[in-house]
């Protein structure tokens, strides 16, 4: 039992189950999934479907945070990617032309990769703090997205493009399949290949990683590019779902939700060990929270209040300082532990 409670996915999983249980209590048919016109429908499917962009962005954010960084620009990249794709499609003579839509997707994702690489270059190449480096595109990127759409909401009417965010394939929403594919790819890259270990190593101890021969600069740039790519796909999904691109509001605050999902999932903001499963759980907690509030009849305006509550509780429970102050009341207070670094000499190059 203690082992279960100690497991690092225990708290996010518990919160998710609690939320689902609350839903079942208020909406008896909550868990049912039915087949209509060859498509699966149901509340659970909806949670996945609406949560898909967030899960995607959070997956990319997980890797960035694992390197000890953070990416604030993902919301802007979401907007830019959707805007560029919609702009290209709206200029096509035949908006259903698959080749044209694929070009649009390629352009959007290409630009996202460039923006991500730029972030990575600022962080790893120039050595700017990640939070500041990515602030630049967070601010300028919104302007860029509006520049692309000329401040308008660009609407498209393309069945092929609609598939990405609103379509079905093999009875499942296509967006869920995309998320599963990206998740599988990320899991493959990080856990089957050695990317995950090297990333955790950089985030865990950058100096030691360099002395072990890891090329952290290139890896860091790649991780930021990958994060932006995920945001780019999420941007396509969001704009495709509503068949329009809104440079101003698409992906607004998604970076905060994504960071939140990563933190709820048990990955430390200090970098190091990360958990993709935890991140997906975290994103689902956030999405389920929203759904729950709608379904049990609490005014939707209060979503943010609950979010604040969840962030505070999850972060406090995971904070070592909080645990020490609140849970370890019994027994003698330990004398101030020697700082880990104090014991050994630190060589200071003159």
């Amino acid at each position: 039992m203690t082992a279960l409670v100690r497991h690092r996915l225990f708290w996010p999983a518990a919160v998710l189950l609690l939320l689902l249980a609350a839903n079942v209590a208020f909406t008896p048919g909550f868990l049912s999934i039915e087949m209509k016109d060859g498509h699966l429908y149901g509340s659970l499917i909806d949670i996945f479907r609406f949560g898909a962009p967030l899960i995607l962005v959070a997956i990319g954010m997980t890797l960035v945070i694992a390197t000890g960084g953070i990416d604030l620009s993902v919301g802007s990249v979401v907007a830019i990617s959707g805007a560029l794709a919609c702009l290209h499609i709206s200029g096509l003579p035949d908006q259903n032309d698959v080749g044209g839509v694929l070009t649009a997707v390629g352009l959007a994702l290409g630009l996202a990769l460039v923006l991500g690489a730029w972030n990575g270059f600022l962080v790893a190449g120039i050595g700017i703090q990640p939070i500041i480096a990515t602030l630049i595109i967070m601010v300028a990127g919104r302007g860029l997205a509006q520049l692309i759409t000329d401040g308008q909401i660009v609407t498209v009417n393309s069945a092929s493009y609609k598939l990405i965010g609103g379509g079905y394939w093999l009875t499942l929403p296509f967006s869920i399949l995309i998320v599963l594919a990206v998740l599988a790819l990320t899991a493959f890259l990080t856990r089957r290949l050695a990317l995950g270990m090297l990333v955790e190593s950089i985030g865990g101890n950058a100096t030691a990683s360099r002395l072990a021969g890891i090329r952290s600069r290139g890896l860091t740039v790649a991780v930021y590019a990958f994060c932006a790519l995920c945001a780019g796909i999420a941007g396509l999904m969001i704009s495709s779902n509503v068949s329009s691109a809104d440079g101003n509001n698409a992906g607004l605050w998604i970076e905060l939700d994504a960071i939140l999902a990563v933190v709820i999932g048990g990955t430390s903001l200090m970098g190091g060990r990360f958990s993709l499963g935890g991140t997906v759980l975290g994103a689902l907690v956030i999405q389920t929270l929203t759904t729950t509030i709608y379904s049990i009849g609490i005014p939707p305006e209060t979503t943010l209040l609950f979010k604040a509550l969840v962030v505070t509780v999850v972060c406090l429970v995971q904070s070592p300082a909080f645990r020490e102050k609140v849970f370890q009341r019994r027994g003698r207070r330990r004398p101030a532990a020697p700082q880990a670094t104090d014991d050994e000499k630190v060589e200071v190059p003159a």
Partner: peptide, 27 residues
């Protein structure tokens, strides 16, 4: 107080504060 005594990053704490304040607006 939360930032200092529980040693949680300002970024996360003030993010929660932001959600709280916006949420109160809508309430």
């Amino acid at each position: 107080c939360i930032i200092h005594y529980f040693d949680i990053q300002p970024f996360i704490v003030t993010l929660a504060g932001m959600f709280l304040a916006r949420g109160l607006c809508y309430v």
